[in-house]
């Protein structure tokens, strides 16, 4: 009821849940069968979602073997907990949230302090928003393809990459990200902004420097 007042203002719908998580044929049946312990149904759910879960892990972790381990963890967790799935959110949303939380838990166990990532990564980048961007540089619009973007995202510092993947790719809101990363929403907004600034910088550079940035990141 409180929401009614908001209807006068133009509500820009976020990335539509439907578009991001379209219903999948046979999924609902597979979920019900999986709840009853049907092994075939597990296999079907895995086949339906393995690529997105794995891709998400890979982008968050930037490392194949860790991404595979976390994919395995995520599905084992899923199959053990599937009885508690009530269908209040889309299944894939539920699965992605579970995956993100497992990955974050894994990173914390490794001693990566996600809250302070901002301070630990390239302190000089904190000045980035204040920098004067030259208009003589080529415009990005229309020039970026998926491969170039994927490569640039992979070379982002981990903290920036995390927020960018969660917000711009996966469609989580800042308040959800803040909860998951245990930081403030302001922190999430500013991390996202810095991530996009960094991407702009990377995408405007010739390929070589992106690769160098990637190597620098990998060497850490």
């Amino acid at each position: 009821m409180e929401q009614q007042g908001l209807r006068m203002t133009e509500i820009k719908p976020g990335p539509s849940l439907f578009k991001r998580n379209p219903p999948i044929a046979g999924e609902a049946e597979a979920i019900e069968s999986a709840k009853a312990g049907d092994a075939e149904a597990f296999s079907k759910l895995y086949a339906l979602h393995k690529r997105r879960v794995y891709t998400l892990c890979l982008r968050m972790l930037g490392n194949v073997s860790e991404a595979e381990d976390m994919t395995q963890e995520a599905f084992l967790h899923l199959f053990r907990k599937i009885g508690s799935f009530r269908g209040e959110s889309a299944f894939s949303t539920w699965l992605h949230r579970l995956t993100v939380n497992l990955v974050l838990m894994h990173l914390r166990k490794k001693g990566l302090n996600l809250v302070s990532l901002e301070e630990t990564i390239n302190p000089s980048d904190d000045d980035a928003p204040k920098r004067d961007f030259g208009s003589r540089d080529p415009q990005l619009t229309g020039s970026v393809d998926r491969v170039a973007l994927e490569r640039a995202v992979a070379s982002l510092p981990p903290g920036y990459r995390m927020v960018f993947v969660l917000h711009d790719v996966e469609g989580f809101e800042h308040n959800e990200i803040a909860t998951m990363l245990e930081c403030s929403t302001g922190n999430s907004k500013s991390q996202l902004h810095k991530a996009r600034l960094k991407l702009r910088e990377l995408l405007r550079q010739p390929e070589q420097s992106i690769r160098q940035a990637g190597l620098k990141e990998a060497a850490k």
């Binding site: 990335p15 991001r20 296999s43 895995y46 393995k50 690529r51 997105r52 794995y54 891709t55 998400l56 890979l58 982008r59 991404a67 595979e68 994919t71 395995q72 599905f75 084992l76 199959f79 961007f133 415009q139 990005l140 619009t141 970026v144 393809d145 998926r146 973007l149 994927e150 995202v153 960018f164 993947v165 711009d168 790719v169 996966e170 469609g171 902004h193 996009r196 600034l197 991407l199 702009r200 995408l203």
Partner: peptide, 30 residues
């Protein structure tokens, strides 16, 4: 700057496409 940042945010949906596939070993372990 605003145009570029908006463009980057929009292009991010390109990355929603799951392009990577886990090895068969993952399912075996599951």
């Amino acid at each position: 700057l605003v145009r570029d940042l908006q463009y980057i945010a929009d292009q991010a949906s390109l990355l929603l496409q799951p392009t990577h596939e886990p090895s068969d070993n993952v399912w075996k372990k599951i």
